[in-house]
């Protein structure tokens, strides 16, 4: 049995029936860390809300722990933990008060499931009497995670837990998720950051309510069909413009300090590249074949 299963899930909004989620199907196995990767507006939040019984699907159906999200919503609500996209704690209550409150609402106590949250809570402990509204982005997310975990849910839904959080806190957050997964909790997480995809067991790339691809991150990147190279020259702006004119090149875009070049079929040799750039008054500084990243794959799907 799947922990989460969605079949042809569909959601539209408003009179004009703007499609937010368009025929989406996917399954998450028990104990899996599954990522929905896509930009804002891709429909991630709508999917989360349907799975957490907060929205009724307009089409298709979905189950969580084998329970139907429409008819068995009461049972589902007892068994899942949910962390919505926006900060969802009481800013005028302290860290400890928030935690105690949510523990009681879920019919448990902080002590009862302390084991589960200990790793995260120790970082919050020094601030336990501080009002939640005065915490930094990373700390707020940790507290929200604690609150979502407090009743030892079987499935954890985390909607963009790392958005707006700095890279260091993001890394720490993903380490926490790994540890939770090791304790057998199924986790569905969404993120707009492509580099976080590799932390998941399996991912679904989504854009405009549709799934572009669904697989393990390794399989998705391995399936990248064209030769891809990283290039660096003395002038990035000029390099991109020059390469976009090259007839063997199908796409070229910046990627950190490098430009990524995707060839239609046959990659240029280093000598050919060097000569081509020289013709364009550019000096080649680095050139190497690389493995595609999730971001490369996503860009390819968008084009």
């Amino acid at each position: 049995m799947w922990a989460i299963s969605a079949i042809n899930l569909k959601k539209t909004y408003g009179k004009e029936a703007t499609v937010a989620v368009d025929d989406i199907s996917f399954e998450v196995a028990k104990g899996e860390l599954f990522g929905l990767i896509g930009p804002d507006g891709a429909g991630k939040t709508s999917i989360f809300r349907m799975l957490t019984t907060l929205l009724l699907p307009d089409g298709g159906n979905a189950t969580v722990l084998g329970l139907d999200v429409v008819t068995d919503y009461k049972t589902i609500r007892k068994k899942v933990g949910y962390m919505p996209g926006k900060f969802s704690l009481y800013p005028d209550l302290t860290v400890l008060e928030n935690l105690n409150f949510f523990a009681t609402v879920f019919g448990t106590t902080v002590d009862e499931n302390y084991d589960l949250i200990r790793d995260i809570y120790v970082q919050l402990e020094p601030f336990k009497d501080r009002r939640a509204g005065k915490l930094s982005g990373g700390m707020k997310q940790k507290l929200a995670l604690c609150c979502a975990l407090i009743h030892k849910p079987d499935v954890l839904f985390l909607d963009e837990p790392t958005t707006g959080v700095d890279p260091v806190s993001r890394k720490e957050f993903w380490q926490m998720l790994k540890r939770l997964k090791d304790q057998g909790i199924t986790i569905l997480v969404s993120t707009p950051y492509m580099d976080e995809a590799s932390m998941c067991d399996r991912i679904a790339l989504i854009q405009e309510g549709k799934i572009l691809s669904i697989n393990t991150p390794q399989a998705i990147t391995a399936a990248f069909p064209s030769p891809i190279y990283a290039v660096k020259a003395n002038n990035m702006f000029g390099l991109i413009q020059a390469l976009q004119q090259q007839k063997e090149v199908s796409a070229c875009y910046t990627f950190g300090e490098f430009a990524h070049v995707i060839y239609k079929e046959f990659p240029l040799s280093e000598i050919d590249m060097k000569n081509y750039l020289n013709e364009n008054n550019l000096e080649l500084q680095f050139y190497s074949s690389i493995e595609a990243t999730i971001e490369d794959c996503f860009i390819r799907f968008l084009k």
Partner: peptide
Amino acid sequence: TGGVDPLT
């Protein structure tokens, strides 16, 4: 660019 897709 927070939350914007990689192409945009």
